[in-house]
């Protein structure tokens, strides 16, 4: 299931998570984020049993965006055991993300 990540639950859901969490940082005014957003939905459908997938609206959750020094959207970060294992800036195609996740499993 897709997790809605916020300043409040980010610690619990991502940083304290022992597994793999794919986080899509987005904002409503970011056009490219919409496209990435639908790719993330597809990844959740295909890989949701192996990894956790979440979305974080940085417009509403500025603390976490600033803590992670996010300065560009769309930003995708893959966490493993609470640490950033891989990160991407800008629109990515599905295969690239899928491969990156599979390498971490």
């Amino acid at each position: 299931m897709l997790t809605e990540l916020t300043d409040q639950n980010f610690d619990q859901e991502v940083l304290k998570n022992e597994g793999i969490v794919v986080v899509d940082f987005w904002a409503p005014w970011c056009g490219a984020c919409q496209m990435v957003g639908s790719i993330i939905d597809e990844l959740e459908n295909e890989m949701g049993d192996k990894v956790q997938v979440g979305k974080c609206n940085v417009d509403k959750n500025e603390d976490i965006a600033s803590k992670l020094s996010i300065m560009s959207l769309p930003a995708i970060k893959i966490f493993k055991a609470g640490k950033i294992a891989k990160e991407f800036t800008g629109a990515q195609n599905k295969d690239v993300l899928k491969k990156a996740i599979e390498e971490l499993i």
């Binding site: 056009g31 996010i70 560009s72």
Partner: peptide, 17 residues
């Protein structure tokens, strides 16, 4: 520095500044 202060899209990234 791409995505860490260098940007090619002001519309996308302005709010971080």
């Amino acid at each position: 520095f791409i995505g860490k202060g260098i940007s090619y899209c002001a519309t996308c990234d302005a709010m971080f500044f």
